[in-house]
């Protein structure tokens, strides 16, 4: 679920941090920059784990801050493909199930990755698994659910450039920006997946 990644970066320590220990202020600045941020092709960074290497600080003309090159290890949320995770159902739609994990909510289980004989019930807006003729199990909102990670999708969202033409339609852009930068596609097909309560 979580991994350690090693990054190197040039960090700027503003003068108002100079009264602190160098290490503390470096970690503070790094946390400010990285905590709860998604890095493309890396994952969701949780926090700084430790500092590996810190170079001497440099001062640039016209700026009182010190610039320090450092190597750091960070905790990253990056489940591997095949890992089994637990979450809660946030929403059911005809396309599939949206799952949330409190700190990470961009998990989606498409309908063709659910159990066989799964049906969507519009009236109850829930997915129903017809295990056999007599038993039908409900995948309802807020149920605790186990799923397997199948795919991870990174989307590189670039900053908006200046408008070139006046007649550019803004609709597409809003759809683009709505898409999460990092999302996980899950599946619910094997034994032990689906609602936790079924298997207890």
């Amino acid at each position: 679920m979580f991994i350690l990644s090693r990054l190197s970066d040039l960090i700027r320590i503003p003068p108002d941090q100079f009264h602190k220990e160098a290490q503390t202020s470096i970690i503070y600045e790094l946390n400010k920059k990285y905590a709860n941020k998604i890095v493309h092709n890396l994952g969701l960074i949780v926090s700084v784990w430790d500092l590996i290497k810190v170079d001497d600080g440099l001062i640039k003309p016209g700026d009182g801050s010190s610039y320090i090159k450092c190597e750091v290890r960070v905790v990253v949320f990056r489940p591997f493909v095949g890992e089994v995770l637990t979450g809660w159902i946030e929403k059911c739609s005809p396309e599939g199930i949206y799952v949330k994990c409190e700190f990470f909510n961009d998990i989606f289980i498409p309908k063709d990755m659910l159990f066989q004989n799964c049906e969507y019930n519009i009236n109850e807006s829930a997915w129903i698994w017809k295990m056999d003729e007599d038993t039908s199990l409900y995948l309802d909102v807020n149920e605790k659910i186990n799923f397997r990670v199948e795919k991870e999708i990174f989307l590189n969202i670039k900053p908006k450039g200046p408008k070139l033409y006046d007649d550019e339609e803004p609709e597409e852009e809003t759809l683009e920006t709505k898409k999460p930068k990092y999302s996980v596609i899950g599946s619910c097909q094997a034994d032990g997946m689906g609602c936790v309560s079924w298997w207890e």
Binding site: F2, I3, L4, R6, L7, S8, V39, L42, E71, V75
Partner: peptide, 24 residues
Amino acid sequence: MKIELEREKLLSNFEVYQHLKQIQ
């Protein structure tokens, strides 16, 4: 920023929990 090593180590939930508790 440069990614030196994408997956240096795997962390267990317990280690992350301890680390975050310490931060808090």
